[in-house]
Design a protein around this nucleic acid. Structure first.
Lengths: 351, 351
DNA sequence: CCGCGAATTGCATGCGTAATCATTATTGCC
DNA sequence: GGCAATAATGATTACGCATGCAATTCGCGG
């Protein structure tokens, strides 16, 4: 019974109030300033002091309150990561990488996910209230929204988005270049008729990929390209493929999908519904280089985004600008890795 | 030139210091308390006051500082979400759902990801420093770590983990029940020899699934089951399949994989390396019901975790306990959805 | 027209820490 | 050994907000 009472008392005490630096100071018989300094990085404290304080702190289970610290230092050590649709298979990989890399720099990630553009303003309000030190967004923001953040003195890094080239710092994979390579190779291998399954019209990534492909096709005099558009999902790939076949009155030589998930959908639809062999009857290419692209049943020919290098760049660019807000905007452009899979007939010129 | 100067001045001002409630109060000619009350939910303020304050606030671009507010209210309105390996395809889905649901309750998500158990203590320290209101963990915590959080008065909800049944609140999918169903159906359909590709030994989820399967097999007198273990990844599925075949000196009637990603790996290995037809020559089952499980090339027979209901339960359970810490621990157990795909021969008794 | 209760507003204080400044202890050096 | 220079420590204040309490205004019935 005594023990029960004790634990109850302990519980209620700890629930009521957690140890502060004053509690530690009192127990250690030193000033609060001393405690504060012991728990800071580059502060001056004697070895003896350090020990006395740490013993007292351990006894009380004291941990500095990052909230209070943030209030006085004007640094929350948190960044906002804004993502739009995690529904497609690509962003989760990015998210983990980002979290871990930020963590190595002592920065925590406050996660915001929005699926409708309309939520953006609300999200923005939230992240400004939380006084994040920086924003990394893989969702589109308009000029006004960007200005709102800028006026608060918070640096922003765009991930695979860009408002206009020069005024904003961003890390991007060269979508158009990737598509041009895919198209070039397809044409080299003899493909003449094409179809495109694009992403949503309001996705800059999709637009870049689609225009990249269309431009290259035009260079080769191919202008009549039936298109379908989807939402980057597997199901959209299947539906999009059928839409294209119906528009053309038959399957084209090759289908260019705006991402891997839809490319896989196209392959399944081609095989299952139309009995086509991939790549013998039809070539299908994707984009991203996500995990499932490597499944034996698909082995997608695609362009893999260098997630590791891109996230590393994004994190370091943001942290640099948090530490020195004067740094000028910069765009870092990465070239995707060319994956020659087995979902398309390529001229296998291994020189 | 005048305009340039103005914008520069504005920029440096906003960079130097963001508007506080005092600034708004001064501009509106009212007290700081009034401003504070206008920006609170259930505070009393006249309509006239509300308008005066809001006009001034808009003019200054004022937003209440959530950090300072947290300091005084002892509520950060943030929860920590701890995830272990996002490498397998399941957790990303969970993460998005959680973020959105918390967001609906006005709660922000601070994301922590750890890939080695050893990082847990460090992560723990961080989230305690940030005074999160609650913790939702999909990673394993030991008793000591759990106590540390408990002593800080922070409620914890486990997601698909449990220390022991009664002392902790958790939401789980009944892994064993799912495996038993899979095994039962496989046996009904005439399968007699089995192999199991399990997850890592230190993963409670994997252990639950594996023991569930083994127990059911034992009920049917099947005890000699070759096993391989992997890390929940596609590649591990492929390697694991071969390992089993080599241990048995040939493929079994059925392989039970601890998750979908490895099941897909098994299928690919069976087809590509051993020329086996799935499910005619061999049945392969998975667990989770992730997106790729539905790809036409696999159409996995699996148990789908009810992510929507589970995340909803987890969020509401955590929020309840944040608002009332006295609520007793509770485990909510969900039954997986049985997906009869085409990767296994089942007795198609459609009654 | 007065008075009384309810609604509104202002004042003062505290949340837990870092940082400045002043003070004291310690070291190095001739 | 003494003195300057440096390190270590303590007292105090500010960060931006919410909140209890006192003061004020408002509405309204008598």
């Amino acid at each position: 019974m005594a023990s029960k009472k004790d634990t109850a008392a302990a519980a209620s005490r700890s629930l009521r109030r957690r140890a502060t630096s004053y509690d530690v100071a009192e127990l250690a018989g030193v000033s609060q300033s001393a405690v504060s300094r012991v728990f800071q990085a580059g502060a001056s404290a004697s070895k003896a002091m350090r020990e006395r304080v740490m013993t007292a702190a351990d006894k009380l289970g004291y941990r500095p309150n990052a909230i209070a610290r943030g209030l006085i230092t004007q640094r929350s050590n948190m960044v906002a990561v804004v993502i739009s649709k995690l529904t497609n298979l690509y962003y989760p990989e990015v998210l983990v990488e980002l979290t871990q890399r930020f963590s190595e720099h002592g920065v925590r990630v406050l996660l915001f996910s929005l699926d409708h553009e309309s939520e953006a303003d609300q999200i923005l309000d939230q992240l400004l209230q939380y006084r994040v030190d920086g924003v990394l967004t893989a969702a589109m923001l308009n000029r006004e929204q960007l200005d709102t953040i800028g006026q608060a003195g918070i640096p922003v890094v765009f991930y695979n988005r860009a408002l206009d080239e020069t005024s904003v710092t961003s890390v991007r994979c060269d979508q158009e270049e990737g598509e041009r390579w895919l198209v070039e190779e397809l044409i080299k291998a003899g493909h003449r008729t094409f179809g495109i399954v694009s992403g949503p019209a309001d996705s800059p990534v999709s637009v870049a990929r689609t225009t990249g492909a269309l431009n290259k096709l035009k260079e080769h005099g191919i202008t009549d390209v039936p298109m379908a558009s989807g939402d980057f999902g597997y199901r959209n790939g299947r539906d999009g493929f059928t839409e294209i076949v119906q528009k053309r009155g038959g399957p084209p030589d090759a289908v260019i999908a705006a991402n891997d998930a839809m490319a896989i959908g196209c392959i399944d639809e081609a095989r299952e519904r139309y009995g086509l062999a991939v790549p013998d009857d039809i070539s299908i290419v994707g984009f991203d280089g996500v995990g499932p692209a490597a499944f034996a049943a698909y082995q997608l020919t695609t362009v893999r985004q260098p997630v590791g290098r891109m996230t590393e760049a994004a994190v370091s660019m943001l942290i640099e600008r948090i530490e020195n807000p004067e740094i000028a905007p910069e765009t870092r452009l990465f070239t995707g890795e060319r994956v020659r899979g087995r979902s398309a007939r390529f001229a296998n010129a291994r020189i």
